[in-house]
Design a protein around this nucleic acid. Sequence first.
DNA 1: AAGCCGGGGCG
DNA 2: CGCCCAGGCTT
Length: 366
Amino acid sequence: MKQEKLHFFTERLAAWFAGNHRPLPWKGEQDPYRIWLSEIILQQTRVEQGMPYFERFCREFPTVADLAAAPEDAIMKAWEGLGYYSRARNLHAAAKYVAYERGGVFPATYEGIRQLKGVGPYTAAAIASFAYGLPYAVVDGNVYRVLSRFGGIAEPIDSAGGKKTFAQLAQRALEVAPLPPGSYNQAIMDFGATHCKPKAPFCTDCPLSRECSAFQKGKVGLLPVKEKKIKRKKRFFHYLVANYGAEVLIHKRTGRDIWQNLYEFPLLEWPEAAASEEQIRRSAPWATLIGDRGAVVRQVSPPQQQALTHQQIQAVFWEVEVEGPPPAASELGPFIRAERKNLSKFAFPKIIDCYLGDNSLYLKLV
DNA sequence: AAGCCGGGGCG
DNA sequence: CGCCCAGGCTT
């Protein structure tokens, strides 16, 4: 892109920003800990969705030392429902690193920030510019969209070459912008989020449209270009809600799969949608935990749905009253006993959280 | 380079 | 129902 056009872009953007920026709780924030927290929360997450989580983390974990000292389960619980739970696990690891190996001092260089777990190029640039005024351009979904449209650049944003192209262009723009790095980064993201939106952008009322290649060519709707399309695999879960008086059994998910370190009921995964009650009774974990001592109270239907990025989860909840005491500790295996009234203390995936909410009446009465 | 990791909002 | 969101890690 010609230098002249780049100047036009940054000057018009700065003028737009002067009258349109979004007032957000973390704007003007000086504390690198809070800036880091907000950026991790906002990864692949809408501002409105992340806001209450940011407030909660600031309240429950006011300093990096508080976060480092917290039990992982407490952090997972605070993160419950936000998704991409590796962010929470990495957040904890990074907090312990800063608190215990750096004496509580947050890194103040791009490279130092980039070393933190869960911090990639975008987040490092965001923290470096917001907290320390360092000249690193952020490249997030908004930036890809704004630059690809304004520059008329059809190079795929999810290719190696495209990432490099847009990163270089973003950096050039930051360096000629009549704004400090942090403000410039805020400006281009606010502009992308509220004006140059994915759908129905405000092109007819846009201060950049005169030089916007996509607008001039009528190709706004075709940019940015992505080349990879995701395919969603279907999975069929059967959750065994085994009630022993006031207690149920749960376990923590481990291993390389979704929802790591979250809790759930004993799970039977079935390769296809149809599974008879007889098949489920004969399979683990039902057969091992309950045998023939269980009476089905209710099979929650229809199956509950949960869409993930690469998977479509279909879950059936089997509520079972089991005669006799819960299994002895030696026979519990990975499962733990929990009183139903204490289930809210554990972090569950959304599909189970929804089930617990919808069935709170049953859970209180029985 | 490709695959994987949540959940919600919107057209 | 498909796309997108203040992306990053693993393989």
